[in-house]
């Protein structure tokens, strides 16, 4: 049976992992490939790296980490952050990533999804959506790090994105992000109900039950989290054991 995926997310700036220093037993480790290997050994099913390098000039150098990660780990990984063009896809995939995620650039130019999926296959194209609740049962797509409301309805955008060829949807709840009160189950439910591609929940994980709720109640295919793993509040192994006991299919 296809298992649910547990996906740690790492932010990378100028080729170094941000927050990497918070690991207490591997002090001062900021190398994406070493942290990637660490998570992979702990049982992560996949990894996501977001490149948050601000200047375009430094971005090319920053992306060199992708090659190092590809050499070091043997599980799939996705790279996102600042992806704007087909050339960005080419560069990241060539360096060895399995998937590329697009966010704001796809809102501005939806054809980017179509072009990329036709060129590389839809399994390579992940549509990342920053969602914020604007009314009862209504969420809008936000861009620019959650500052700008595009007016786009999240459900409609998810539908359009998959029709254009996105092979996976990552839903980041801006409201829940960093709150540690759980994923936005209502939003996720509505998305898993309508799209026929894997959906990954992001934003809000604080305890193991939150992962279970998203996987069980919203039937998402994977759960993404950053700080609970980085700060060792939850270990991946412990989480997987817990989920398995609760009847969720996980890879152990």
């Amino acid at each position: 049976m296809l298992t649910k995926r547990i996906i740690p997310c790492l932010d990378v700036r100028n080729g170094r992992v941000v927050k990497g220093k918070k690991f207490d037993d591997i002090i001062d480790v900021e190398d994406p490939e070493i942290l990637g290997k660490y998570y992979s050994d702990m049982g992560a099913d996949e990894l996501v790296f977001y490149d948050i390098t601000a200047s375009n000039e430094k971005r090319g150098i920053s992306l060199e980490f992708v090659e190092k990660v590809a050499k070091k780990i043997n599980i799939p990984f996705c790279v996102g952050g600042g992806v704007k063009t087909i050339d960005d896809f080419v560069e990241i995939l060539r360096k060895g990533a399995d998937k590329v995620s697009v966010n704001s650039a796809a809102v501005k130019n939806p054809d980017l999804i179509k072009e990329a999926s036709e060129k590389f296959g839809n399994q390579c194209v992940v549509l990342s959506i920053d969602a914020k609740k604007v009314d009862d049962n209504k969420w809008h797509v936000f861009v620019n790090g959650g500052r700008t409301d595009t007016g786009l309805d999240v459900i409609e955008w998810a539908n359009k994105g998959t029709a254009l060829g996105a092979g996976e949807i990552v839903v980041n709840s801006i409201d829940e992000d960093g709150m540690k009160k759980g994923y936005d189950i209502e939003l996720l439910k509505q998305i898993t109900d309508i799209v026929n591609v894997p959906v990954i929940a992001s934003g809000g994980a604080g305890e193991m039950k939150h992962f279970y709720d998203a996987l069980k109640s919203a039937d998402v295919d994977g759960v993404l989290a950053a700080s609970v793993f980085h700060y060792k509040e939850i270990s991946i192994k412990e989480l997987k054991d817990y989920l398995k006991k609760k009847g969720i299919e996980v890879r152990i």
Binding site: M1, L2, T3, R5, D45, N122, Q123, G167, E168, N196, V197, P198, D221, G222, R251
Partner: peptide, 13 residues
Amino acid sequence: EKEKKIPHMGWNN
């Protein structure tokens, strides 16, 4: 098969 999510993506036994 169409009833399943496509692509078949992830870890399977």
